[in-house]
Amino acid sequence: MKLPSHGRYAPSAIPTRPDYRWPNGARLAVVVCNNIEHFAYRAGLGSDSAQPGAPQSFRNYAWRDYGNRVGLWNMLEMLDELEIPSAHNVNSAALDYMPEIAPALLARGDEFIGHGRSNAERQDILWEEDERRLIVETRDAITRHAGTPPRGWLGPYLAQSHATLDLLREEGFRYMMDLPADDQPFWMATRAGPILSVPYSIELNDSPAMVFRQHSGREFAEMIIDQFDEMLAQSKRRPLVCSIVLHTFVVGQPFRLRPLREALRHILRHRDDIWLTRPGTLADHVAGMPRGLVPGSEMLPEPG
């Protein structure tokens, strides 16, 4: 029986891959990814603090808006206090809506990652021409606010059409984080050349954990610690990427921020043993590695 396949990447069992190290000899890379989102008022898509699939209302619009008005600023203060670099998956509409956001991220030297126009819509239901327009409008709006175009992409709701990877590569994106398929980066085929998949967790992610599965902030902090400790031990055998995924309107709430801070402090006690980085920096490093080390790298052009 031949099952349908995407044809973007080949199967690859992690114990069979070549070994390598991250910068400074580290075996575990840690990335903190924050999501900055803006939604339509009483329309489109959007999560709810009380129940999955609730209709859009003034209440849940305001709950999500807390992230831009308060939660993000709580989080940035914590990241500054702990001296943690971060990347932000940004709806371009959020930068237009709240003009204070982009300067604050630029002041930290943080990375802007394309995250669609708004999380009130998804791209996988669009015709190819309309999906390209969404990607281009997102890229250009972020460029206007950040001064440089984003090189990475995370689709709203991590949703992809059959053409998403092709469109991203054709419009200048060099990596994406939509595929939770691995704990190492890997290259994927597009009609315009390879694009890199950077690990991005939907398990160690505050939105599905606390909004949909109704875990507490303390339980989520314990998940972070358990994930980090186990991956640090596993990294003795192979290089890994531990991604921690946050949303301003979820962990930006003060009672959730306190256990999150404790979990991040636990990670920082191992700062000399890890590579604390951003996805774009990690993607740049992988792009400069010799062919044959990273799955799919045989698709890359020969150097020189």
Results as ranks from 00 to 15, higher is better:
Ala181Thr: 14
Ala163Gln: 11
Phe212Ile: 07
His266Trp: 01
Leu106Tyr: 00
Met1Asp: 05
Gln214Leu: 09
Leu260Val: 11
Ile202Met: 15
Met223Asp: 13
Ile202Arg: 15
Val70Asn: 05
Gly252Ser: 04
Val90Lys: 01
Tyr200Arg: 09
Ile135Asp: 03
Val241His: 00
Leu232Phe: 11
Ile142Gln: 04
Thr248Ile: 00
Gln234Gly: 14
Leu282Ser: 00
Ile125Cys: 11
Met75Ile: 02
Ser57Asn: 01
Ala192Phe: 04
Ala192Cys: 05
Ala283Met: 06
Glu100Ala: 15
Ala104Lys: 12
Leu106Cys: 01
Arg218Ser: 06
Phe212Met: 14
Val245Glu: 14
Gly25Glu: 02
Pro259Phe: 08
Glu121Ala: 01
Val250Trp: 01
Leu246Ile: 13
Ala93Gln: 03
Leu106Glu: 10
Ser197Asp: 07
Met231Gln: 14
Gly53Arg: 15
Phe186Asn: 11
Ala93Arg: 01
Pro149Cys: 11
Asp178Pro: 14
Glu170Arg: 13
Pro239Met: 14
Phe112Lys: 12
Phe58Glu: 10
Thr277Gln: 01
Thr281Gly: 01
His88Arg: 11
Pro180Cys: 06
Arg132Pro: 04
Met210Ile: 03
His285Val: 03
Gly25Met: 06
Leu134Ala: 13
Asn74Trp: 12
Phe228Ile: 11
Thr248Met: 04
Leu154Lys: 06
Ile202Asp: 11
Trp275Ile: 03
Pro11His: 12
Met177Lys: 02
Gln160Trp: 08
Phe173His: 12
Leu165Tyr: 01
Arg213Cys: 13
Val294Pro: 07
Asp80Met: 00
Ala233His: 09
Gly155Pro: 07
Glu170Thr: 05
Arg213Met: 13
Ile84Trp: 02
Ala29Thr: 00
Ala102Thr: 01
Gly155Asp: 15
Asp140Arg: 15
Val211Gly: 12
Glu262Gly: 10
Pro55Gln: 03
Gly67Leu: 02
Leu3Phe: 11
Ile195Cys: 10
